[in-house]
C-alpha cells in the first residue's frame, strides 16, 4: 500500500463501478496531490461524476481502494468522509430546498452526535461562522429565504458556501461552473482562487476548457472510465490522445 504518502490528498487504487454492462469507472488508479487545484475533464460519460460519487461515498465501490488523506478505504461511508477531511458539491445542485438559506449553512456546522445535538442551540461561534460564509458567497441578505426560492446561480453559490462551511482540507466540486452567468462565474472562480491561496486542496470537474486552463495546477483526463492522461495542464491538453478523445477518432 502506498497510502501513507504525505503529499497526496486523494488516491485511488484500481477502483471500479459498473452499472449493468456499463463500466462507468474501470480499474482506475490515480493520485491527487495535497494543496493546489486539480481538474478532472473528459467527454460526456467518461466517469467524472461517478468518480466524485465514489470518492465521497455516495456510490458504493465495486472494487479497489480509495485512499483519503493516507487512510485506505475499501468501503467509503459518506458520513465518514468529513472525518477524512473531504467534502463535495453536486453536479445537479442538492440543497435542502425547503429550509432557509441560513439553516442550509447552519446544519453542517452543528454537532454530529445524536444526543448532544438535541441539547444544542445556535452557538455564537457557529452564528459568526455562518454569517461569514453567507457574506463571502454574497448570500447574507437572502438568509431567510428558502433555498428553493433562489436563482440557479445563487443555488450553486450556496452549495459551494455549504461545502466551505465544512472547513475540511479537500473539496470536490462537481461542475461548479455549469450554467452560470459570467458574473456568477467570476465569483465562483474568485472563491476557488482564494481557497487555493489559503492552502486547500481543490478538485473540480468541468467542461469549460478556458476555466480549466486558468485555474488548474494539474489535470486528470478520463475516458470511458479509465485514466487517459494526468499531469501539468498544457502538455496533457496538447497530447495527441487527449485531442483524439475529445474530437472523436
Amino acid at each position: 500500500m502506498t497510502g501513507n504518502d504525505e503529499a497526496l490528498a486523494l488516491q485511488t487504487e484500481g477502483i471500479s463501478k459498473h452499472f449493468g454492462a456499463v463500466r462507468a469507472v474501470d480499474e482506475l488508479s490515480l493520485s491527487i496531490p495535497r494543496q493546489g487545484t486539480t481538474s478532472i475533464v473528459g467527454p460526456n460519460g467518461s466517469g467524472k461524476s461517478t468518480l466524485v460519487n465514489l470518492l465521497s461515498g455516495v456510490l458504493p465501490l465495486d472494487g479497489g481502494m480509495v485512499i483519503i488523506d493516507g487512510v485506505g478505504l475499501r468501503v467509503v461511508h459518506a458520513h465518514e468522509t468529513p472525518d477524512h477531511g473531504l467534502t463535495r458539491t453536486f453536479q445537479e445542485v442538492r440543497l435542502f430546498d425547503q429550509i432557509t438559506v441560513w439553516d442550509n449553512i447552519m446544519v453542517v456546522l452543528t454537532d454530529r452526535r445524536l444526543f448532544s445535538s438535541l441539547f444544542e442551540r445556535i452557538r455564537p461561534a457557529n452564528r459568526r461562522k455562518a454569517q461569514e460564509i453567507l457574506e463571502s458567497v454574497g448570500m447574507w441578505e437572502k438568509r431567510d429565504s428558502l433555498a428553493m426560492e433562489l436563482s440557479y446561480g445563487q443555488r450553486k453559490l450556496l452549495e459551494i458556501g455549504r461545502a466551505m462551511a465544512m472547513d475540511v482540507q479537500t473539496y470536490l466540486f462537481d461542475e461548479p461552473f455549469a450554467g452560470l452567468f459570467p458574473q456568477m462565474l467570476e465569483r465562483v472562480k474568485d472563491i476557488m482562487k482564494q481557497m487555493r491561496a489559503d492552502g486547500y486542496t481543490i478538485v473540480f470537474v468541468s467542461h469549460n476548457m478556458d476555466i480549466v486552463r486558468e485555474l488548474s495546477d494539474r489535470i486528470i483526463v478520463l475516458d470511458s472510465g479509465t485514466l487517459l492522461a494526468a499531469g501539468d495542464v498544457e502538455p496533457v491538453l496538447g497530447s495527441a490522445e487527449v485531442i483524439e478523445a475529445y474530437l472523436g477518432a
Binding site: S56, G57, V58, A78, H79, E80, T81, P82, D83, T87, R88, F90, R94, L95, F96, D97, Q98, I99, D103, M106, V107, V108, T110, D111, R112, L114, S117, L118, F119, E120, R121, I122, R162, M166
Partner: peptide, 25 residues
C-alpha cells in the same frame, strides 16, 4: 428548535446529501 431538529428537516429534504456532511441519517 435544536440542532437535532434542523438535521431532521435536512433529512426530509435530502437524506443522502446530509450523510455527506457527516450525519448518520
Amino acid at each position: 428548535t435544536s440542532s437535532f431538529g434542523r438535521v431532521l428537516t435536512a433529512i426530509r429534504e435530502d437524506e443522502q446529501a446530509i450523510e455527506v456532511f457527516g450525519y448518520r441519517a
